[in-house]
Design a protein around this nucleic acid. Sequence first.
DNA 1: CGATCGGTTGAGTCATCTCAACAGAGGTGG
DNA 2: CCACCTCTGTTGAGATGACTCAACCGATCG
Lengths: 218, 218
Amino acid sequence: MSLAHAFEDLKPQRESDALADLISRMGVRMAYAKDEEIYAQEDPVEFLYLVVQGAVRTTHLMSDGRRQVAEFYYPGEVFGLEPGPDHRFSAEAVADAIVVVVKRSAVAAFADDGALERAIWRATRRELDRTQTHLMLLGRKTACERVASFLQTLIDRAPAQEGCELAMSRQDMADYLGLTIETVSRMLTQLQAERVVEFKSSRRFQVRDPEALSRLAE
Amino acid sequence: MSLAHAFEDLKPQRESDALADLISRMGVRMAYAKDEEIYAQEDPVEFLYLVVQGAVRTTHLMSDGRRQVAEFYYPGEVFGLEPGPDHRFSAEAVADAIVVVVKRSAVAAFADDGALERAIWRATRRELDRTQTHLMLLGRKTACERVASFLQTLIDRAPAQEGCELAMSRQDMADYLGLTIETVSRMLTQLQAERVVEFKSSRRFQVRDPEALSRLAE
DNA sequence: CGATCGGTTGAGTCATCTCAACAGAGGTGG
DNA sequence: CCACCTCTGTTGAGATGACTCAACCGATCG
């Protein structure tokens, strides 16, 4: 974990968001290498984090090694919010990442009256929303639908310029989707064979049939 | 949907909870028959609900009929909180139920300053916590582990007196656990054969080996 | 140029699903 | 009060979607 300078002028890159603004103005900028841990399962919940560059995943490891990826976070998004006093998930950098970190209590002191509460409230609702979407994906969808939904979510979040980038490995996708890497790979191959998407490389794709994709994603 | 009298003196039966108190003091008491709808998917989110008697489930129905049960709510528990402006899930009575209903704006007017916000905030965090637990269950657990986890959760929530009651059908359990009724039934039979639990009837069981159950539930 | 890493593909296995029969608990009406 | 019906849950047998294990491939790196 390497420390960089604080109080830098960082703009949230993805949306205007009061909480992201606060964090970027008050926090310490940190750099994490790919797969480096940002916080651990069971750690107390006391910081807020803003992704500036790269991507972050939150994961839960079961005692026998099975892994569940709870969520991916991209530049401009806040993570580290959890309902309990301790983290149920750990956070790691999916790829080399820059993250702004700030202690919740510090933000509380600086923020005007209810601004922080409202901002955290909004972010928590967003968290719940995403978790519910994820739940629907895991509960009743087929492997193909899961992969299609995942790609759909990616392009929804990142305005699809020339090709959408997959920040994460097949293993990360598999652990998010509740599948194996082989199944993920086969489904991607299948979607490409059906001319729904096209992969220019294993980490970069373009949608060829948006209609079909959103139909598959339900 | 039958209407009964308002402003009755209802004590939340399961925990002291500011929000439940508020709702029970201000709300209208309603009775719902088994499987009756309390609110629908896509309905605007504008009421808060407190279970007084019976049980309630929230479910999402996919276009082809696949169903996912998101959560079950028991007496003393608040439901109807969702992150978006519209309900992603519908709510129905699992068994004949009594529910207190109140308009959010009405509670807001009566509650002192931030009391309502804090209460809703707390309830939403609880909602997120449960959804995360559910997510872990659906992502990587086997059928047997899912069923064991489910039973474990039940006895954790309801202090296990003489036998724990299953308020819901096998279909409801299956749709919650992402399984079929046959698989749920087989797993229950198996758990009973292994002397982990004992069923006195199809809806009432007792734990015989708590150690084994919590090990299976992970 | 070999080694390593991430990803793909193939072949066989297995957990769960599907379809179908059956069993018990109520409920109803003759 | 008994015969019948319906509804819910259980059990069995066979099908199948996803998993496991293993080989292979291409890119990257020393």
